[in-house]
Design a binder for these strands. Structure first.
Lengths: 177, 177
DNA sequence: GTCTATACGTTGATAGAC
DNA sequence: GTCTATCAACGTATAGAC
């Protein structure tokens, strides 16, 4: 017998991710999540120690993937930008949630970690000086904004990806191959 | 006799802008604002009808300036990008607050307005097709990210501005003059 | 203009029955 | 695993004295 969605924990994560993405973390109450699942708030506490714990369980796969990427960055700038785009695309649900309520990064206490990670990619992409970093910020930041502003566009992973990577590459100031 | 900071209302706005920028809107309580001012929570309600009203009073000048710019856009892409940067720079305090907690845009009920305004600038800068808009998003988004990530850098308005505008211009794909 | 006091809702979280 | 019941803490907002 195939089990479809029997796992309450996984369902709660799905619903939470969706609500966080639209309302933001703080604006989403556990009552609301429980309500959608048709269970009580207290039942949620059987599956998650706290609200922050639920959030952490969503962000964790994202963090793991980022670690993997930044530990093994491609040599070519274009490949790096594509890998970055694809990674953010895969985790676009939780990415939207974070963008919607950046303050959660404080709660997660991973702000320093994020800065370190971004800096590593920035330097690898553009170089160590401030001017280099500015170019990297425009490129990566712009690329990421694409994922947010075209979040609902069905062509996000194809047409838009290609055009966005091209634009980011130009922003970087890398001579065309 | 010179009046320095006698106006409680203005002081409240100053403190609120600062707290919103660091904690985000929802995370900032009126008690905290009142506490910093050395007055009571209730006293705040003399100056502002509600918490949302206080927020609106901060965002209003930003909105006004954006209206002015988008009603009279420069002809040259570079000038447009510079004007956009300078506008965001002038209002960087409240901009940071919004970024910190994008959900406030729902509260302000200006989401549709923002989308319309961004679209207008995007089209003027790059053109009407989706591909055009992607380039514009990378350019403007990247530019704006610069203001956030280098918010504390003293060279933001000078060196960084120049480098960022150049990068955004390249992202746009405009042939160098 | 600012205060104290208070009303009233909602939140995250816990205890204990089933 | 899920429930009901309950908690303390904090939120916005109001009433009325000074």
């Amino acid at each position: 017998m195939p089990r479809l969605t029997t796992d309450t924990r996984a369902q709660a994560q799905r619903v939470a991710a969706e609500l966080f993405a639209t309302r933001g973390y703080e604006q989403t109450s556990l009552s609301e999540i429980a309500g959608r699942l048709g269970i009580s708030k207290a039942a949620l506490y059987y599956h998650f120690r706290s609200k922050g714990d639920l959030l952490r369980s969503l962000v964790e796969p994202f963090v793991t993937d980022i670690e993997a990427l930044s530990a093994d960055l491609p040599a070519e700038p274009r490949a790096t930008l594509e890998a970055f785009f694809d990674l953010c695309y895969r985790h676009r649900a939780i990415l939207l949630g974070i963008v919607r309520d950046v303050a959660v990064l404080n709660e997660l206490k991973i702000v320093d970690w994020i800065i370190a990670w971004r800096t590593r990619i920035d330097v690898a992409l553009a170089g160590p000086t401030t001017a280099d970093r500015v170019r990297a910020v425009v490129a990566l930041g712009g690329l990421q904004d694409t994922l947010i502003l075209f979040a609902d566009d069905p062509e996000l992973a194809t047409t838009i990806r290609a055009e966005a990577v091209d634009a980011a590459l130009r922003a970087l100031g890398v001579p065309p191959a």
